[in-house]
């Protein structure tokens, strides 16, 4: 049959469903093992964060599309959590192989890492369903729930979100070409605009870098 925009959207959703229907709502044994290997076990914080962001997401979603659609938001978030666990496990396996270490205590106790990873997973789900979520919400121009909406919902810095995108794409081999393009567009939006907002942690890093440079004798002035 000929490919139509509707058929393409349905295929993408179906593809995501196939992956996530068999995925877990909770950490797998493999993930639990990574958590247990940590100097400080991160599992309680991870579960609390998911619970807290579930409430925040549900509230913001309902505000955007109407209280009648709140259950759609609950389902989207649930799929996002499944993808988050799935990608986290793949990332840790990849990092274990690359670094030859088993203790990821620092990474797994880093709140920005988890929030960014969960935001990226939820963004993939939201972008997969695209505008279908707005059908019961009325005005579409006021209810665009794709990126960067998730940054506002999770109170997340764009610069931190940026850090997980490439690794996410690298380890999640089932992402469609359209989804990779979407994440690439998110990257470009961050690089060109969002990372340069005045409260961006990017400026702290620039300052740190400049301070380090200042400590080392520089024979030549830094060029513009």
């Amino acid at each position: 049959p000929p490919q139509t925009p509707v058929r393409a959207a349905m295929n993408t959703i179906q593809q995501l469903m196939v992956i996530l229907n068999s995925a877990n709502d909770s950490p797998s044994n493999s993930l639990i093992s990574y958590f247990n290997n940590c100097t400080v076990n991160p599992v309680e914080n991870i579960l609390q964060r998911i619970e807290h962001l579930s409430y925040v997401f549900r509230t913001r979603f309902a505000e955007a599309v109407g209280q009648a659609c709140v259950e759609i938001g609950v389902q989207r978030y649930k799929l996002g959590v499944r993808l988050y666990y799935r990608v986290m496990e793949s990332m840790l396996k990849s990092e274990e192989k690359r670094l030859s270490v088993h203790n990821f205590s620092k990474l797994l106790n880093n709140s920005a890492f988890h929030t960014s990873l969960l935001a990226c997973a939820v963004e993939v789900v939201m972008a997969t369903y695209g505008r279908s979520a707005f059908e019961c919400g009325g005005s579409s121009s006021e209810t665009d729930l794709t990126f960067p909406w998730i940054l506002y919902v999770f109170d997340l810095k764009a610069f931190d979100f940026y850090k997980v995108i490439e690794s996410f794409i690298k380890v999640e081999s089932s992402l469609s070409k359209a989804m990779i393009k979407h994440l690439e567009r998110c990257e470009h939006q961050i690089m060109e605009c969002l990372a340069w907002k005045s409260d961006s942690p990017f400026f702290d890093l620039l300052k740190q870098s400049k301070d380090r440079e200042g400590q080392i004798e520089q024979p030549e002035p830094t060029s513009t």
Partner: peptide, 21 residues
């Protein structure tokens, strides 16, 4: 994959990006 330009070097990953190396 799929035309995406990977920018991270072989010795870089999320651990380094989140300052956890």
């Amino acid at each position: 994959s799929q035309g995406y330009h990977f920018g991270l070097e072989e010795d870089e990953g999320v651990s380094e990006l989140f300052d956890c190396d």
